[in-house]
Structures are given as C-alpha cells and as structure tokens.
Amino acid sequence: MIKAKFFLIIVCCSLLHLVSLQGALSANQKLQYHTEPNIDEALTKLKNKMSQIKTVKTNFIQEKKLAILNEKLILQGTFFLQKPDLFAWHVKKPIQYSLLIKDDIVRQWDEDTKQIQRISLSKNPAFNVVAGQIKEWFFGTYISLLEKYKIIKIEHDPICLTFIPREDAITSKMVKSVTISFRKDERYIQQIFVEENSGDSMLLKFIDTELNIPIDAAAWEVKPGV
C-alpha cells in the first residue's frame, strides 16, 4: 500500500503535462468560475461526436514555455491513437524520440541512447497516469470531468472549453487551466493549451489530422525515423 505514496507524486504532476497547450486564454483573461448550467448538453454532444472516432493520426507541434529553458522548446512529430488502448507519440525534432503505449507496456526510444526502454504501466505510476490522461483528454468523455473541473465554454462555433481544476482536486496545486479548442466539425481536438500555476505553459497543435483511417502497423513500433 505504501508503494502508493510514491505514485502520488506522479498523479499530481503529470496530470496535464502530456497534453500541450493552446493560448486560447490570455493571462489577463477573466474566467468565469462556475460551470455553465447548459454545459452538460455541449459535453454530451462532444462525447457523441468523438465517440465515433476509432483512430486518429495527426502531426503535431508542441511548444513548451518553461522557466528552466531560455527558449521555447518546440517539438514536432506525429501522434497516433487507436481506441481503446493504443497510443504512439513520435517526436522528430529537436531529437528523435518515440513513446508507445500498448496494453500494459510502455516502450520508449531516443536517438541519444538508441535504446528501447520497456516499462510496465502497472509498475510505473508515472506512465500509468499518462495513459489515464490520454484517455481523459483525447477520448472526449469530458462529462466525467465535471467533478474535478469547472468547465467553461469560451467559444461556441467551433466550441472551445476551458477546464479549471476545482480547489479540492489534486490538479489544482499545479494546473491553473486547460483549454481545448475543437475542429470546425467538432469531431476532434484542434489544440490544447495548459497553463500551470508556476507560469510554465504548453501548447499542443494538431495538424493534418486524419480520423478513422487504418493506422499503419509501423506506427505501433518504437523505431527510429517513424
């Protein structure tokens, strides 16, 4: 049981980091701190639309603004998702890095070490949380997040939602807000912006997104140059 304690760090910290951010909210933007009364309807609509999506293939640009670095860290790569449990994250720049989550196993590879690292999800709380977060943010079941977040609709067409952790939620210590913008057809995410209490932020933009297409088996391999 005490093993669980160590996990908690990860739970707290990794909640939103795997997601990139979008600057949909400017720093001085005034937020409503109450979930909108008719938000359920919007969330259900999104859930219905996104539940139709079985596979996702998209290029991405991730911008991380971190106090630890003098410059923005910009990552480019490709992201694959196949419901219910397959996820691949291939970074091409600035260095090649791949992460694959398949069943209970996480595999990582990077061009510096050139080694594949295998990690069991159940034995690695950090990646377990990552897997949980992927489902939480990329599968569209936002209605279940109402207990943890106050959700505000800041744009109507296409829809754009901001999630503000409730005070008693574990994420509130680290995350200030998460804002998700959707495509025009509202079938999938356009971009995600995460702003942290520390001032760090991340923006993840999806480009050339293809939905419900057969994913090449090579996407689920941790190999250089994919």
Binding site: I9, I10, C12, C13, S14, L15, H17, L18, K64, L66, I68, L69, L73, L75, W89, V91, P94, I95, Y97, L99, Q108, D110, D112, T113, A126, F127, V129, V130, D200, M202
Partner: peptide, 21 residues
C-alpha cells in the same frame, strides 16, 4: 544535462521538472 533534456521531451518526464531543477 542530456538526460534532463530528454526527460523534458517525454510526456511523463515533464512532471519531473521540480525534481530536475
């Protein structure tokens, strides 16, 4: 430093920021 930098690239490694610093 290379190891720390690589951790910044991984989705799971980012939460380690306070620890890296």
């Amino acid at each position: 430093l290379a190891k720390n930098y690589r951790q910044l690239l991984t989705p799971a490694g980012l939460f380690m920021m306070p620890y890296i610093r």
